[in-house]
Computed example of a mutant assay.
Amino acid sequence: MKLASYNIRKAVGRDRRRDPGRVIEVINSLGADVVVLQEADRRLGPRPTALPRKMLEDHSDYIPAPLAANDVSLGWHGNAVLVRRGLEITDTQRIELPSLEPRGAVSVEIDGKLRIAGTHLALMRRYRHPQMRALRAALARGETPTVVLGDFNEWSLTLGMEELHHGFETNVPGATYPTFRPVAALDRIALSPEVKLKRSGVHVTELSRIASDHLPIWAEVSLPAAAVPEPRSAVEHAPGAPG
């Protein structure tokens, strides 16, 4: 399976224009089975989604996982998960994370065989550590192979991820922030031992450099033979998004 993570900055690009169409175009170009999003909803009021559901339905091959706590958001604390049509969502979870500012995480189970979690951690490491502990505890309740993707807001390549080392192997695909000259690998992946990482990388295109202030990351993973989901029947390539 191919997984991806993308901080879409509420669909506001480097040019300060809010343009959900080009964000969807970047998402389509990833070619992933599951895409975890951060900052998918606005922060104020009822937190309306930055990616209209109708636009996703009409211009992508993805279905938002049912994670929102209201009728206007796409996710939980801005964390959303898009699943390609043809894959079955067998479980969802919203996870509260401790912080001075509202933070959370989400997870979805695909075909009962792979759990994918998405998160957006705090700016300060002293808050990220208890958040990772809470995330690890919430995900440890089951035995399903698990992959965590998201914006961990960690600038160091050697420190800061220790709380996930118990039970997960972390991966840094590359520098993702800021898009005009990436120097920080804020977006990362953590895999439980049952999940094998085949390849990972940063999705760099002319459009992804302007659609947000983060570049998307992706990972190709393999599961134990007994846990491999059935082949999907959906169309492989999604139609293009509006300009």
Rank of each mutant, 00 (worst) to 15 (best):
L149S: 00
A227D: 15
F168C: 01
A225V: 12
I217Q: 06
H166E: 09
D213F: 13
E206V: 12
S192R: 04
G167C: 08
S200V: 00
R209V: 13
P173T: 02
M161C: 09
E154M: 13
V147P: 01
L123N: 10
K198H: 00
A117V: 03
G118K: 11
V183G: 08
I110V: 15
G142M: 02
A184E: 10
A184H: 14
E220P: 02
T176P: 04
A175K: 15
T144H: 06
P216E: 07
E143A: 15
D111F: 02
S156H: 11
D213Y: 11
G167I: 01
H165A: 05
V228C: 07
R115T: 08
H166N: 09
E194H: 05
S200D: 10
A219H: 00
R141Y: 01
N171L: 12
N171E: 06
E163V: 02
I110C: 08
P216R: 11
Y177G: 07
R128K: 10
T205Y: 12
A190G: 03
F152A: 06
V228T: 14
R115F: 05
V147F: 01
P193Y: 09
M124Q: 12
I110S: 00
V228I: 14
T158E: 13
A175T: 15
K198G: 00
F180R: 14
V148E: 07
G167A: 10
L121V: 06
L135P: 00
L186M: 11
E162M: 05
T170C: 10
R141D: 05
L186I: 11
K113E: 04
